[in-house]
């Protein structure tokens, strides 16, 4: 049986921390809230939490606070921006 795989694109310093441009999480649920997804990410990569940086999750290009996402969504984990 195939379990749902969530693919998360990552940017900036996250690429250095993880050593890749994407993170894959196998979660036994077809949908998950963004806050739970972030908890799963912190569980798998505790070094992200240790940095004490407010990371944001975007779903299909939109900043997601309390929405749900599924493996079909385009999910991104972003550090704070530093444009300008």
């Amino acid at each position: 049986m195939f379990l749902p795989k969530y693919t998360i694109k990552i940017y900036g310093l996250l690429v250095d921390i993880i050593g890749s441009n994407t993170i894959s999480l196998i979660i036994d649920s077809p949908k998950i809230s963004v806050s739970k997804l972030l908890d799963e990410l912190y569980k798998k990569y505790p070094e992200l939490k240790r940095l004490e940086i407010p990371f944001s999750i975007y779903v299909n290009g939109r900043l997601a606070d309390d929405t749900e996402c599924s493996p079909n969504d385009e999910i991104a984990l972003l550090p704070p921006g530093s444009g300008g």
Binding site: G12, Y58, L78, G81, G83
Partner: peptide
């Protein structure tokens, strides 16, 4: 607004 919230990353 751009400095704080645009998804642009600087090394």
């Amino acid at each position: 607004a751009i400095k704080k919230n645009a998804p642009i990353f600087k090394l």
